[in-house]
């Protein structure tokens, strides 16, 4: 079982506010996932190369050419808040 602190840490990194019941439920579910990974770990993978993708593809690249952009209004259409030509967000000050 993973610890409650671990769940709180991961929740904070993911900007999730969980109440006590949710924290406990997540702890159980995450522990279940990790237990399943442990089961996979029992397999002999010596000589099997680690892979990040299931598809047998490499080097998918495109030419360096321009495509049409969104217009400014389209680009800003989904903004939660807008100020002229900009997206507006709560004040971010580096301190």
């Amino acid at each position: 079982m993973i610890s409650r602190q671990d769940v709180e840490h991961v929740a904070r990194l993911s900007r999730l506010a969980l109440n006590d019941a949710e924290l406990e439920r997540m702890r159980e579910q995450l522990s279940g996932i990790l237990a399943y990974i442990d089961k996979l770990r029992a397999l002999d993978t010596a000589g099997v190369e680690p892979t990040s993708h299931a598809v047998p593809l490499v080097n998918v690249m495109r030419d360096d050419a321009n495509r049409p952009c969104l217009s400014q209004d389209e680009a800003l259409a989904n903004a939660p808040d807008r100020s002229g030509e900009f997206f507006r967000v709560p004040r971010i000050i580096e301190d």
Partner: peptide, 22 residues
């Protein structure tokens, strides 16, 4: 480059804000 890393938007400096996105 002429276009961005993962899309075809132009890379010129000084364009109006939010006019070079997709």
């Amino acid at each position: 480059t002429r276009s961005k890393m993962f899309c075809g938007c132009p890379t010129g400096f000084g364009a109006p804000p939010n006019s070079q996105t997709c």
